Amino acid sequence: MKIIECPRDAMQGLTEFVPTATKTAYLNALLRVGFDTLDFGSFVSPKAIPQLRDTAEVLAGLDLSQTRTRLLAIVANLRGAETAVTHPEIEFIGFPLSVSETFQQRNTNKSILEALAELAQMQNLCEKSGKQLVTYLSMGFGNPYGDPWSPEVVGEFTQTLADMGVGIVALSDTVGASTPATIAPLFGQLIPAFPQIEFGAHLHTTPTSWREKVAAAYQAGCRRFDGALGGFGGCPMAADVLTGNMATENLLAYFQEKGEELGLNLEVLAEAQALAGGVFGAVVH
């Protein structure tokens, strides 16, 4: 079972800039918790995501000496990937490839065909640099724009990624559109069809629908889940009203019920929750 903690996704939509020192202290606490991976920052245009313009400075302040957690950085183009791979501390490079043409343009200012061409270059770059590319299939459970979507479409995208050699694919519920009726069949079909790929669930949700979504993915065989403490954040490019990230607390509660051994330091988790109040302007319970 892999839990990917995503403070980058939680912070990126905040309008008030969080000081670098505050970010760094929060991320260092999260590192000590022992998550599998920390989605800590992004190398994108400061004009697009001003909140994360200090990712390189934050990275320089992270203490990786006593953690098993690996670092993931998000990029929106090849230039960002070229910057990210120069940092030896970063193991994973994440790129959002959308199943929706409208959202691909809105999120990365390029067409799906252009994004696929650039993604192939990123995969090659990662292979040469000893990194792993994580591809997020944005709008993986449907979209509000009327663009074509079906399990077959998602399967075709996945086949293209498999042909490139991509090893990790996270189905992303960018606007909270997923339901158990869409989640279970997708994972149920894709996981056995592509055994060489590790599939993840990046689910956005409301406070009342999280359990059924997690259960659907878990029961269909998914063992990689993204979350963010407090359920903060979402994609600022997706909608005017943000649908929250999957709350890490809910993921942990569910998997503990299922008897999964997560190996996390819960005392440090409480410390991180306290620090989250300084980052997001509210106390996380």
Results as ranks from 00 to 15, higher is better:
D173Q: 04
L27H: 11
N109S: 14
F157D: 05
V175S: 15
E89I: 09
Q105E: 11
P144K: 00
K23P: 03
F35V: 10
V44T: 15
K2G: 02
G94N: 13
A228F: 03
A247C: 09
I183S: 10
Q132M: 07
A120R: 15
A220S: 12
A48Q: 09
Q273P: 05
V44P: 02
H202W: 07
F103E: 04
P192S: 13
T15N: 11
E118V: 12
H285I: 14
H285D: 13
A115E: 09
G188V: 13
E152G: 03
Q256C: 04
F194S: 07
A217Y: 03
L72C: 15
T243C: 13
L30G: 02
A56H: 06
I74G: 04
A217C: 02
P88S: 13
D54W: 08
I93G: 01
M122R: 09
S98N: 05
R211A: 07
C6S: 15
L171R: 04
I112M: 05
A276S: 15
A170H: 08
S150Q: 05
F187S: 14
A247F: 09
Y145V: 02
T135D: 00
V169P: 01
A276W: 06
Q132R: 13
L275Q: 13
K2H: 14
K258H: 04
D240Q: 14
N250I: 15
A184M: 08
F255R: 02
V18Q: 06
E249T: 07
S100H: 08
K47S: 12
Q196H: 12
S100G: 06
S65C: 07
I4S: 03
T102F: 11
T86E: 15
D63Y: 06
T86S: 14
G234V: 02
A29G: 05
S129V: 05
A10K: 08
F40C: 07
A56C: 01
L59H: 11
T22F: 06
L14D: 06
S129G: 02
P148D: 09
I3H: 03
L251V: 06
F199V: 13
S138F: 00
T15V: 14
M11E: 13
Y136I: 01
I4F: 10
A115L: 07
H285N: 13
P50Q: 04
A81N: 09
F92V: 15
S172Q: 12
P148H: 03
T248M: 02
A247N: 03
V284E: 10
N109E: 08
E127S: 10
